[in-house]
């Protein structure tokens, strides 16, 4: 197969390096334009198995707020994001909740947990 050049913007840090990646099929031959090592591993991962952190909210029952912000224990495959959001939308949690509480364990068999981003008290108890 003939090597193909692809362009990517690295999302690892706020700098956003513009990468040019020389690939042969799904193999990365060389990465140009990265200012640090993380750029090269991002390019490899992005072409082989692209992943993202995803944050959302879930419904809360009997809480001081109607929704609880949640995040992931690790980045998830990009292709699973829509399905993940459908899973998250089916959940209702009962207050109180502590930051780090697992809201969905091993979501979509990904090995990743959906966790609470903050504490949430029961309704009626103010700060």
């Amino acid at each position: 197969m003939k090597p193909v050049e692809k362009e990517l913007i690295c999302v690892t840090c706020p700098r956003g390096c513009r990468l040019r990646v020389l690939t042969d099929g799904d193999k990365v031959l060389e990465v140009f334009g990265n200012n640090c090592k993380r750029g090269a591993s991002y390019a490899e991962m992005e072409l082989r198995d692209p992943r993202r952190m995803v944050a959302s909210t879930v419904r809360v029952c009997n809480g001081e707020r109607p929704v609880l912000p949640v995040t992931l224990s690790a980045p998830i495959q990009k292709r699973l994001i829509r399905q993940l959001l459908r899973e998250i939308s089916t959940v209702t949690v009962e207050a109180p909740v502590k930051m780090g509480d697992v809201i969905i364990q091993n979501v979509l068999n990904s090995g990743i947990n959906v966790v609470a981003s903050r504490n949430l008290k029961s309704a009626g108890k103010t700060h």
Binding site: C13, M53, A55, P69, V70, T71, M99, S117, R118
Partner: peptide, 24 residues
């Protein structure tokens, strides 16, 4: 509290946190 997305605290806590966790 309303910035539920990740990307906070890489300098302060050396971790990629959502806004509410940084506040907490």
């Amino acid at each position: 509290l309303q910035c539920v997305h990740n990307g906070f605290g890489l300098e302060t806590f050396r971790e990629d946190l959502p806004g509410p966790s940084y506040a907490q």
